[in-house]
């Protein structure tokens, strides 16, 4: 039966709708494939925007806007994401609710224009800071919507910059989604610099101890929210001997591969981090401790694997295997074929 609530939308349209539903007030952007449509859809919806001269200006305009209390955001990719790290670093240092939708494209350099998972390290740990930012990795179109809503809410609530790390396949895919069932309450915005307040707000310090105190306070705040923010999907892990770890749309493909491998009596399960920063570490380790083998599957040369391995507890005795295709899409069949050999 046809479900009238469902709409046939592209990822870019869904991203735009999520920002509108949050009540985002303005977007600063610079066109770059594959994320341009998020910007142009936003504009076609009659929303406020500015096309800046580069991603640096877009990023810093967002910084200024959120300091004034405006729900502003941006979207970028690849080389633009590199430039955006300048502003993201300020947002991390000053704890600004800076929201960026990043659709990964191939790298290094200008690479390819549609797809990769090679901006994972950059999103999580870019900038000259400590990676105190929220990074969400949607696997599906519906999740793209829910995670953008979460990113806006949690960024304004906890005041850490937030990146929704997706890719060109996701933003250009058109699919049926029921956004009505995904609606959530919005966190209110508030000016961080108020008229008449006389606030002197530094982000450069004279003494090492001053900066140390700032960073450690942010670290403590980040640790405090981790249990509530860190999210991951686990699938068929109860009796799994082989744990597949993948994120984003590779994670979604891996989930289907798990079903097919199970049909062939392969005891596999999936751990799919939904937030890459912060990572659901206790959940990861409770599963990882029980398996004999961990297979990292990603469209990069180990960017996810490094993030995960850094958090594995010493009690994890599993051996590691890798399916790494930098800048290349990974199909279900390939995952099934490769994992069947392990």
């Amino acid at each position: 039966m046809y479900d009238v609530k469902k709409k046939f939308m592209t990822g870019a349209e869904i991203a735009t709708q999520a920002a509108i539903d949050f009540g985002a007030d303005t977007m600063y952007g610079y066109p770059i494939t594959p994320v341009t449509e998020v910007f142009t859809n936003w504009i076609k919806q009659g929303q406020k925007y500015l096309q800046t001269e580069d991603e640096i200006a877009a990023g810093f305009a967002v910084c200024g806007a959120v300091m004034a209390g405006q729900k502003a955001f941006t979207a970028t990719s690849g080389p633009g994401h590199i430039l955006m790290q300048d502003a993201l670093s300020m947002a991390e240092g000053m704890r600004l609710p800076f929201v960026a939708i990043v659709a990964q494209r191939g790298g290094p350099s200008s690479g390819t224009v549609i797809y990769s998972q090679q901006e994972t390290t950059l999103a999580c740990f870019g900038g000259n800071g400590e990676g105190l930012r929220l990074v969400y990795s949607p696997g599906t179109l519906a999740e793209l919507y829910t995670l953008i809503r979460r990113a806006f809410n949690e960024s304004w609530q906890y005041r850490f910059p937030a990146i929704i790390l997706t890719d060109g396949y996701t933003v250009k895919t058109r699919g049926l989604v029921d956004l009505e069932n995904l609606k959530v309450e919005n966190v209110a915005s508030a000016p961080l610099v108020k008229e008449g307040e006389i606030k002197h707000w530094p982000n450069i310090f004279t003494f090492e101890e001053e900066l140390y105190t700032e960073v450690m306070k942010s670290k403590a705040d980040f640790d405090k929210i981790t249990a509530g923010v860190a999210t991951a999907e686990e699938y068929q892990t109860e009796d799994a001997e082989i744990l597949l770890i993948a994120h984003g749309i590779v994670g979604a493909a891996t989930k289907v591969a798990v079903d097919q491998l199970r049909e062939a009596d392969k005891k596999v399960g999936l751990f799919r981090p939904i937030t890459l920063r912060p990572l659901a570490v206790p959940q990861l380790n409770s599963i990882a401790k029980k398996v004999k083998k961990i297979v990292f599957i990603e469209s990069s040369l180990g960017q996810l694997a490094r993030i995960i391995k850094d958090e594995l507890s010493p009690g994890v005795g599993a051996s590691f295997e890798y399916l790494q295709c930098p800048g290349l899409g990974i199909e279900i069949e390939e995952i099934v074929n490769q994992v069947s050999k392990f």
């Binding site: 640096i56 810093f60 967002v62 200024g64 004034a68 502003a72 300048d86 670093s89 530094p202 450069i204």
Partner: peptide
């Protein structure tokens, strides 16, 4: 009200 920005970035921050 006064705040720091980054080198070369005060103009886009203030227009935001």
């Amino acid at each position: 009200n006064i705040f720091h920005t980054h080198h070369g970035r005060v103009t886009p921050t203030m227009l935001g």
